Each structure stands twice: as C-alpha cells, then as structure tokens.
Amino acid sequence: MTEYKLVVVGAGGVGKSALTIQLIQNHFVDEYDPTIEDSYRKQVVIDGETCLLDILDTAGQEEYSAMRDQYMRTGEGFLCVFAINNTKSFEDIHHYREQIKRVKDSEDVPMVLVGNKCDLPSRTVDTKQAQDLARSYGIPFIETSAKTRQGVDDAFYTLVREIRKHKEKMSKDGKKKKKKSKTKCVIM
C-alpha cells in the first residue's frame, strides 16, 4: 500500500485542523484551538488504489514558523489553505509557496490551493482571484467548507493525484537520464 505524506499549511484560523478532522473523523470542530502540530493517518481508496494518507496539520501562528522547514522537508505534497473571508490569509499563500519551493529546492512541488469556509456569506476573496492565482502557479484550486464537508475529500484526493503525477514524471525523467548515460565512448 502506497503511503502519501501530505502537509496542510496556511495562516492561523483558516480551518486547516477543521478540514483535516472532517476528512479523518467526519465531524466539524467549530471551536478554535490553535494547533502546534498534529499528525493523522487514514486509509482510503483513490482511483481504485488503496493508500495510506499521513497528514500533518501544522501551526499557522507566526511564533511556530521555525518548525516549518522541518515538516516541509518531509512532506510530499501540500494543501495551501486560505479562508475566503480573510484576504490576508490569501496573500500569505505566496509566502508559504515560496518557502516550500526553497526548502524542497524545487520549482515543481505537488500543491493544491484550497479556499476554505465557502459556506460563509462574508467572502472577501473572489473565486476568480483564487483561480487566477492557482493557474499562475500551475496547481489545482478547490473551494471547501469544513463545516458542510463540501470539497473536503476532493481537496485531499486531488493532492494525492498531483503527487502521483509528480512521481510518474520524475521516474520518466530518471529513465531518460539513465538511457543517456548508457551511451559509451570508444577510443581507438
């Protein structure tokens, strides 16, 4: 069974824990209790493949930012979460993405942009803004509501699919490099 290491990042209060708990335990946590770091595991079937999701729910508070490099190193894919009623959390996505790329030393890291709290009427981040940002990053965008469960499975499952595509691409690139290195030079 394939294991996928997913990391949920975003500013404090955007609903990272609520999304994760909704996926794992099928219930909505409405009281806000700032996370330092929590880890969850769940076995699911995605596109006919049974897999184990190892999900790291991270601290959004700035005082825990020193811990970010460590979990970013171990993560295979990242859910970059903002709240649709919090423009600052949307603007912060850029910083999370840049930090992930720096730590992973790669421009090509599996990510999904997630606009959470889409059940709320007080939207300050337009869907088109988020779609445009995701398009500019070359990553999928999904709106979710941890409260109603809308888009929750889709967000995590899409990230797994992005990781699969990335692994497939990397193995193809690896095979191309191996083929090239088999060419021999004969000096007579």
Rank of each mutant, 00 (worst) to 15 (best):
D126F: 06
Q43V: 09
N86Q: 10
E162C: 03
T158F: 10
Y4M: 15
I55P: 01
Q43H: 06
D153V: 07
Y157E: 12
D57F: 00
D154S: 06
L120G: 13
K172M: 13
H95K: 10
G15S: 01
N116K: 00
I139D: 04
K176F: 04
V114N: 01
I21W: 01
D108C: 08
F82E: 08
S65V: 08
S106N: 09
E162L: 08
T35G: 00
R164S: 11
K117M: 14
D54K: 04
L56Y: 00
L159H: 03
N116A: 14
L79C: 14
L113W: 15
L56P: 00
L113P: 01
L113H: 04
D69M: 10
H95R: 13
V186I: 12
K180S: 02
R164A: 14
K176R: 04
D69C: 04
P121N: 13
Y96G: 03
G60C: 00
K178N: 05
R123V: 09
Q43W: 03
N86G: 11
D154N: 06
I24V: 14
S122T: 11
A66L: 09
G75V: 04
Q61G: 08
Q129W: 09
S136D: 15
R68D: 04
V9G: 07
I46H: 11
M72R: 08
T183H: 04
K180L: 06
I84F: 12
H27L: 10
T35P: 00
K184I: 00
D30Y: 12
D54M: 11
M188D: 14
F78E: 05
V160I: 06
P34N: 01
K117F: 14
A18R: 02
K175L: 13
T2V: 10
A66W: 15
Q25Y: 12
E63L: 03
D132N: 06
G60L: 00
L6R: 01
D119V: 04
S17R: 00
L79M: 05
Y71P: 15
E62D: 07
Q129S: 12
I24C: 06
Y40M: 00
T127Y: 08
G12F: 07
K104A: 14
V44K: 09
I142Y: 11
F141W: 05
D33V: 01
K165T: 15
G75A: 12
R68F: 05
D154L: 06
K101L: 15
T50V: 13
D105N: 05
F156P: 04
G13V: 12
K101W: 09
G75D: 03
A83H: 10
Q25A: 04
D33A: 01
Q131V: 12
K176S: 11
P121K: 10
Y137L: 09
V114T: 07
Y137M: 14
M111E: 02
G12S: 13
V114I: 10
I139G: 12
E76W: 10
T2D: 14
H95G: 12
E162W: 09
T2E: 14
V186G: 12
G77T: 11
M72S: 09
Q131I: 05
E31N: 13
Y64L: 03
L23E: 15
D126K: 10
I36M: 01
I21G: 04
D132A: 05
S145A: 15
R135T: 09
S65D: 05
D69F: 09
T20F: 00
D57H: 00
D173V: 05
E107M: 13
I163R: 03
F156Q: 02
L159Q: 03
M72I: 03
Y96A: 06
L23P: 00
E37M: 02
L133K: 10
V160N: 06
L6I: 14
A66K: 08
V45S: 12
V109K: 08
T58A: 03
E3H: 15
G151S: 15
S136P: 15
T20A: 03
D126A: 07
Q25F: 02
K117Q: 14
Y157V: 11
V45N: 14
V109R: 05
R135N: 07
T127K: 05
F141S: 02
S17G: 00
G77M: 05
F28Y: 08
V125R: 08
K178Q: 10
V45R: 11
I100R: 03
N116T: 14
Q25N: 15
T74D: 14
C80M: 10
T158R: 03
T124C: 09
E3R: 11
G75E: 04
L6H: 02
E76Q: 09
P121Q: 07
G60I: 00
M111T: 04
T158V: 07
T158Q: 04
V160L: 08
G13E: 12
Y64V: 02
Q22P: 00
K182V: 03
D108W: 04
L120E: 10
K16P: 01
R123C: 11
A134G: 08
T127G: 07
K177H: 10
T74I: 08
S106V: 12
F28Q: 01
H166V: 09
F78H: 04
K178I: 11
Y96W: 15
R68K: 05
I46W: 08
D119C: 08
E98V: 03
Y40I: 00
D38V: 01
Q22Y: 04
Q25K: 03
K165M: 04
I142M: 03
D126V: 07
I55C: 13
Y4T: 08
